[in-house]
Design a protein around this nucleic acid. Structure first.
Lengths: 151, 151
DNA sequence: ATCGCTGCAAAAATTTTGCAGGTAA
DNA sequence: TTACCTGCAAAATTTTTGCAGCGAT
């Protein structure tokens, strides 16, 4: 049984490549957008809009601009939304040509995050889709537990 | 390979049984709480706090009370939170002795919901836990697609 | 009679939007 | 130049909290 996603490399795409992707879509490469992209490309794990805001020097970007920029990047498929069940959306950069599909193991005590290579088997997903007549089926899967340090 | 959860019966627990569970935990059985429980026990699928509020006659319950009651029911394990990725928490009644663990297939167009019997294989979950030294690992899994009517 | 629960209203927190000026292309 | 972006501030949401009075037990 083969999962339909593998762990992806963590070597970050260069900032130049990222901004090029914006330009290619006729979007402007501005200071705030570069700051956000440059922050995200250094992160291994998803950040919320507010976390991005706090991580950036106050002069770099307004919180409203972050909301707007993240919306844009999400629409362009450059950023993917993850939900760890605490009501806060978090975002991760998606590598060129990738769909960003993967999962996390989140510590319910300290909120540390591990990226997971395994994935729900495609055959099951297809079967579930067929069984109910649904099309274009995907899934969201996240794991929760207590990390070694917090035990 | 066996999933570790099966579809559960949809026959709703009686309101009397539900309120008894409250009383057994030294919580008061009040009008608003009965109204909420009685509404949830008739639902097959999760409702948000606001949906509960709109579904109830205005005089039955204040929105703030619903937030408080749902928090309580969640703490008592009588209600389970689900997240369909749209930023709104939804809640489902959990049957006595059950842990409420199951998954949904949600239409991304009309938001209709189908309950899913399959589940992520326990062995994999255990392996993931072991691999990263995590304890008490569970998961959240939801499927998304386009239902027959919306295609 | 208690103590928990409720409604109401205000506060806090989160996300969206309008607008006027600035800037990438 | 000309759209597109941005900061700021206000608005719209969503969720939490304080408080005085009511009511389940």
């Amino acid at each position: 049984m083969k999962a339909h996603c593998d762990a992806h490399s963590h070597r970050p795409e260069s900032l130049a490549d990222l901004t090029e992707r914006l330009r290619a879509r006729a979007r402007k490469v501005t200071g705030p957008r570069q700051a956000i992209l440059d922050l995200l490309r250094r992160q291994r794990h998803p950040l919320s809009n507010r976390e991005i805001w706090r991580a950036l020097p106050p002069s770099d970007c307004n919180l409203a601009t972050i909301y707007r920029a993240i919306h844009l990047l999400e629409r362009l498929g450059m950023v993917k939304r993850f939900d760890f069940g605490d009501g806060v959306a978090r975002f991760e950069l998606v590598r060129e040509g990738d769909d960003g599909h993967h999962h996390h193991l989140v510590c319910t005590v300290c909120a540390s995050v591990v990226e997971i290579a395994d994935c729900f088997p495609v055959e099951w997903e297809r079967q579930i889709a067929k069984e109910h007549g649904f099309g274009s089926v995907t899934h969201k899967l996240e794991f929760f537990g207590v990390c070694p340090q917090c035990q």
